[in-house]
Computed example of a mutant assay.
Amino acid sequence: MIPDDIRRFIVQCIPSVPFLEALLLLRDGGAREWDSAQLAQRLYLNTAKADELLAQLLRAGLLSLHEAAPTRYFYAPRTPQLAGLVDQLAVIYGQNLIEVSTLIHLKTNRKAHLFADAFVWRKKER
């Protein structure tokens, strides 16, 4: 079972499973620095997708850029509370991989359905 605070964190802050996988990989790497090529290789993605994930993680306040090498990222949540949520999520994901993945996919599918519904032509009633 996913605790409510972690469920909220997933729904509000985790847009995709690749985002989560990248986050947890960088978290587990400690102070190691990553670039898009390394992340792409480890997650079996193309470098464009890895660049996108790193940019999303940076905007979310989960990573920082190396000052001398602006293409090198490292795990650095902006607050201790955020770091604590990620730590809890890592444990829960390890124990409930399917439930966490399903929650992320349901959220993504719901957004896709809402977007698709905007383009449905409705018959005008008389």
Rank of each mutant, 00 (worst) to 15 (best):
L65M: 12
F119E: 07
L57T: 00
R32Y: 09
Y73L: 05
G29H: 02
V91Q: 15
L23Y: 03
E67N: 09
L53Y: 00
I14Y: 02
E67G: 06
T79K: 08
F9Q: 08
L53V: 01
L62N: 05
L89Y: 03
E52A: 06
P80I: 06
W34A: 04
T71A: 11
A55C: 11
Y75I: 02
R110P: 00
L39W: 03
L65Q: 09
Q88E: 15
R110I: 06
P18N: 05
W121P: 07
L103F: 10
E52S: 11
E125L: 12
E52F: 05
A48E: 12
Q95N: 14
G94S: 12
V91M: 15
A22H: 04
G61H: 08
V91N: 14
F74A: 06
R27P: 00
R7P: 01
I2M: 14
V91I: 15
T79V: 06
A116P: 02
P70S: 06
P3A: 04
K123Y: 12
R42F: 07
L114G: 09
K124V: 11
E33F: 10
R72H: 11
I2W: 14
T47I: 06
L114P: 02
F19N: 04
A112N: 14
R59S: 14
R32W: 07
L62A: 09
N109T: 07
A60K: 07
V91D: 13
D35M: 12
H66M: 06
G84F: 08
T71D: 12
S64I: 04
L57Q: 02
V100G: 00
I92V: 14
V120N: 09
A50I: 01
A83T: 07
P18G: 02
Q88Y: 11
A31R: 12
A118P: 03
G29R: 01
R110M: 15
Q38C: 07
Q95L: 13
A118V: 07
Q95M: 12
R122D: 12
P80L: 11
L26Y: 10
H105A: 13
K123N: 08
L39D: 07
E99Q: 14
P18F: 03
S64L: 13
H66C: 10
R110F: 15
A69V: 11
A60W: 09
V86F: 05
K107F: 07
T71M: 09
F74W: 10
R27S: 08
R126I: 07
L63K: 01
Q56L: 02
D35V: 01
L63E: 05
A90S: 13
W121V: 15
K111D: 15
G84N: 13
T102D: 15
V86D: 03
R122A: 09
I92K: 09
P77M: 04
A118W: 09
L24M: 13
I92E: 13
P15I: 03
I104P: 00
E52K: 04
I10E: 08
W34S: 03
E21Q: 11
L54Y: 00
N46D: 15
A116Q: 13
L39A: 07
L23D: 02
